[in-house]
């Protein structure tokens, strides 16, 4: 059974993205082992000269290293990814490279009608950067709009069409992870290039 790390893309106490990932953990429990991981509490990334990454970020990196893939669920602030998630990804690419060639599935929810579409596009660009080099599942998008009304009292997705779409995308992700494991011929080079990429003073 594949092991996935599900990153909650916000530090907020109340989050429908967290609800979505917790729902996926329960709903797909017979297909995969999903661990919901928080990014809250990381210090503001300040590019320290000594390359010291906080222990909390190292712990997340370790979990990602040992996983078969990562699911990130992002809200949208100001048409883009929240600073808290950007901050986590900065630490997770500063001298450490847990995301290189790691399969990633992106989901997102929003209170309004757009379901974090712009933030998801932004997140793809970030994950594709030379410091991260994640293997983002292509041609897939799960946008949960009007998320405050999306779950019942037990935290289950109400909309059956949305659920069918999520089921389909998750099955695709399982396949994609299997495929990604075979796309490993350049992994060591990619890892080397990511670590060679200089975070020189910008």
């Amino acid at each position: 059974m594949n092991k996935y790390i599900a990153l909650v893309g916000t530090n907020s106490d109340k989050s429908t993205n967290r609800e979505l990932l917790q729902f996926m953990k329960r709903h797909y429990a017979d297909q995969a082992d999903i661990e919901v991981v928080e990014i809250k509490g990381l210090p503001v990334f300040n590019k320290p000269d000594n390359m010291k990454v906080p222990d909390a970020a190292l712990a997340i990196a370790d979990k990602i290293d040992q996983s078969d893939g990562v699911i990130i669920s992002t809200p949208e602030y100001d048409h883009s990814v929240p600073a808290a998630l950007m901050n986590a990804l900065e630490w997770l690419s500063y001298g450490i490279h847990p995301f290189v060639d790691k399969p990633v599935m992106i989901t997102g929810s929003s209170y309004g009608a757009l379901g974090s579409s712009r933030a998801q596009g932004h997140l793809r660009i970030i994950l594709d950067s030379p410091e991260l080099r994640a293997r983002i599942m292509p041609s897939s998008e799960f946008l949960l709009d009007h998320s405050l009304q999306a779950f019942d009292d037990d935290g289950n997705l109400l909309d059956q069409d949305k659920l069918s779409k999520l089921d389909g995308l998750f099955a695709d992700f399982q396949t994609f992870v299997g495929l990604a494991k075979q796309l490993n011929h350049a992994t060591s080079i990619n890892r080397q290039e990511a670590s060679d990429y200089s975070w020189d003073k910008q």
Binding site: V44, D78, V81, A83, M86, H122, I126, S129, L132, Q202
Partner: peptide, 20 residues
Amino acid sequence: TPEHNHTLTASLKSVIEWLS
């Protein structure tokens, strides 16, 4: 703005989020 991970820094984004 510098560029980290193909985008602006989280520290700048955080400032903008507080100021919006």
